[in-house]
Design a protein around this nucleic acid. Structure first.
Ligand SMILES: [Zn+2]
Ligand SMILES: [Zn+2]
Ligand SMILES: [Zn+2]
Ligand SMILES: [Zn+2]
Lengths: 143, 143
DNA sequence: GCTTATATTGAAAATCATTCTCAATTAGGT
DNA sequence: ACCTAATTGAGAATGATTTTCAATATAAGC
C-alpha cells in the first residue's frame, strides 16, 4: 500500500510537470511510515533527526502537495496546528479527541453522515466537506 | 433578554472581583446588538466607528471574558478568525457554512447529537464539547 | 472626599504557525 | 554537457492573537 501511495504521488507530480527530489522522497517516506495525525512541526522534527538539512518551509510545502495529490488530508483539531493524516481513497472518518492526553480516535458513523446530508438538503445547501470532532476525555483519562 | 445577559456578566465580574469599566460596557452593548458570528476584528471595527479610542487588545480580552462569563461562545469556522456568538443557556446548535458567500446557517439535530454520544460511549470517551460544521454552497450560490 | 490597593487600558512588542521572497541549486529534457 | 524551469533553505514577512508595561481608572476603606 505504501507503494501505491508513492505511485499516486509520482503520477500526480509527473502530470503537473513537477520534479522528483531527494527532499520529497524523504518526506514522503517519513510521512508514510508515521502514525496518523502528525502536525507539520512534529513531522519536521522527526525528519530532522534522520536527515539534517531539510528546511521546514520544504516540509510545509510538501505536505500541502501531498494533500493536493490526494494521498493526505489536512485536519485541524483545535490546538492551533495543522495535522496531516493518510488519505485512503473513498474512506472517511471523523475524530474523537482526548483533551487530557491528546489521544485521537477515529470513527465512522454512516447514520450521522446521512443525517448531515439531510440537514444540508433541508437548508438548500450542497455539502462539499464537513468537520465533526468530539472533544472530551478518553477512558484512561476519565477519572 | 439583553438585560439578563448584562446581568449575568455583572454577576460574573462581581464574583471575580473584576471592575466595571466604560470600555466593557460599550463592547457588551455592541456585541449584544450585533448579528451573530462576528469575528473579533469585525466587532472591533464596528466599535471603533462609534467610539474611537478602544484598543483592539481590549476587544480581544473582553470577548474572551464574555465567553468565560457564559454569555458568548467562541467558534472557529475555518477562515482563520475566531468568531463569537451569543450563548443562550441550555441551547446548542451547529453550523452550515457557505464557502462562496460566507453565509452561516444554524441548525440543531437531536438525532445527530444523540448518535455522537453513542459513538463516544462506544469508545469509552466522556464528551465535553463537540464541533460539527457542514461546508458547501447555499441555495443562492449553488449554480 | 481623599487615599490606596488593585484592576484595566492602549500601544507597541512579542508570539506562533504558516507563507513568501529570492538567490543558489538541481532535475530532466535536448 | 547545456538550458530552462522547478526546487530548496534561510530568513523575512504575514496575520491573528497575546503579552508587556507604564499610565489610568475603579472601588474600597477611612
Ligand atoms: Zn464524517
Ligand atoms: Zn483521522
Ligand atoms: Zn451539535
Ligand atoms: Zn451559531
Amino acid at each position: 500500500m505504501n507503494l501505491s501511495k508513492k505511485q499516486i504521488f509520482m503520477n500526480y507530480t509527473a502530470a503537473k510537470g513537477l520534479k522528483s527530489t531527494r527532499q520529497r522522497d524523504i518526506i514522503l517516506d517519513c510521512f508514510l511510515s508515521s502514525e496518523q495525525h502528525l502536525s507539520t512541526e512534529e513531522l519536521y522534527l522527526k525528519i530532522k533527526k534522520q536527515n539534517a538539512g531539510i528546511g521546514f518551509a520544504t516540509v510545509y510545502r510538501t505536505l500541502k502537495l501531498f494533500a493536493e495529490a490526494g494521498i493526505a488530508s489536512e485536519i485541524q483539531l483545535g490546538d492551533g496546528q495543522t495535522r496531516y493524516e493518510h488519505l485512503h481513497a473513498g474512506e472517511h472518518h471523523d475524530h474523537l479527541v482526548c483533551t487530557k492526553c491528546g489521544a485521537i480516535v477515529e470513527f465512522a458513523n454512516e447514520t450521522i453522515e446521512q443525517l448531515q446530508k439531510d440537514v444540508a438538503q433541508q437548508h438548500g445547501f450542497t455539502i462539499v466537506t464537513h468537520k465533526l470532532e468530539l472533544y472530551g476525555t478518553c477512558a484512561a483519562c476519565t477519572g
